[in-house]
């Protein structure tokens, strides 16, 4: 047997060991998640809210956009559980549909920042000459106050849910990219990646199989937080007049609409406010749980 063949053989067995180790780790991870109280609470909250959002057309008692001049700013009652807004629209129905829009915005921003963050972060850490250029650009984006960037983009692109998603994606991608880059840099130096390189695995294979596989955990944690932050950011954009356009409800634009009547009709802003708080809290608890489990320093403490 030639020395070369031996090397390849060793590489194979090394890889085999690694995959099974990963599988074991994944199993352990799932078990730990099921065990973690704050993750469980957060996940349950999110599941319920998602269910409400998905079932909106069947749950909502009224058409969320139906104006009713006779029933403007009515307090909570058996007819309108959450009261009505300045157009006489049922707040409960609007909150249910608004949840749909807000969760969709949050989820899409989380996914898109995840994708772009991964591409940019990996590129920066893997392709040395790109690192400086990419990181300076991302630093520039980060130095740009997020809200202002969002307003400017919203003015440029016109109002739509898509605009909100794009603006928030641009705002949060740099942070995600940094997280990925940091994780990849750590992994890159590790022995098994060196080993994979040594046995001649292709760049694509190394990136997808070994590096990204290991950057995935911090990335998921980051995405959970981006999801949460985006829901709040949507509300702030609505406050500044660049949120999802009327008449479609989002949690943020219902609150923004209701802020003028905080004293006269508290229900307009308070009910969607509670739902936002619950959603964001749920996501944060989930993220905390994930991070606790992933971060080995915290693992022992529990």
């Amino acid at each position: 047997m030639s020395a070369e063949a031996l090397d390849i053989d060793q590489g194979k067995s090394l890889r085999g060991e690694m995959t099974s180790a990963r599988r074991r780790r994944t199993l352990k991870f799932v078990r730990e998640l099921a065990d973690h109280p704050s993750f469980l609470i957060g996940a349950t909250i999110l599941a319920i809210l998602t269910l409400i959002a998905v079932l909106a057309p069947w749950i909502a008692p009224y058409d969320p956009n139906k104006n009713n001049y006779r029933d403007v700013l009515m307090g909570p009652s058996s007819q309108f559980w959450f009261g009505t807004d300045g157009y006489g629209r049922d707040i409960l129905s609007r909150v249910i549909y608004g949840l749909r829009v807000s969760l969709m915005i949050g989820l899409l921003v989380a996914i898109l920042t995840g994708i772009f963050g991964t591409i940019l972060g990996t590129a920066a850490s893997y392709v040395r000459w790109l690192d400086g250029l990419l990181m300076r650009t991302l630093d520039g984006l980060m130095a740009f106050p997020g809200v202002l960037l969002a307003i400017a983009l919203a003015s440029a692109l016109g109002p739509s849910e898509m605009t909100v998603i794009i603006a928030l994606t641009v705002t949060y991608t740099p942070r995600t990219a940094r997280v990925v880059r940091a994780a990849v840099l750590v992994v890159q130096g590790m022995q098994y990646v060196e080993a994979a390189k040594a046995v001649g695995a292709g760049h694509g294979r190394i990136i997808f199989r070994y590096i990204l596989g290991n950057a995935l955990s911090p990335l998921i944690v980051q995405m959970t937080f981006v999801f949460a932050v985006s829901i709040i950011a949507e509300a702030i954009m609505s406050f500044l007049g660049v949120g999802p356009p009327p008449p479609a409800p989002s949690l943020g634009n219902i609150i923004a609409d209701g802020r003028t009547y905080i004293q006269e009709a508290w229900w307009v802003a308070v009910f969607p406010g509670i739902v936002i708080a619950v959603a964001v809290l749920g996501l944060n608890l989930m993220g905390d749980g994930l991070r606790d489990i992933i971060d080995p320093r915290h693992r022992s403490e529990r």
């Binding site: 956009n65 139906k66 104006n67 157009y87 007049g241 660049v242 009327p246 008449p247």
Partner: peptide, 16 residues
């Protein structure tokens, strides 16, 4: 526009 509340509100009701 989103500057004068009357404008936006009227547009919403007209649209419906």
């Amino acid at each position: 526009d989103n500057t004068i509340p009357f404008h936006g509100r009227a547009a919403v009701v007209i649209a419906e």
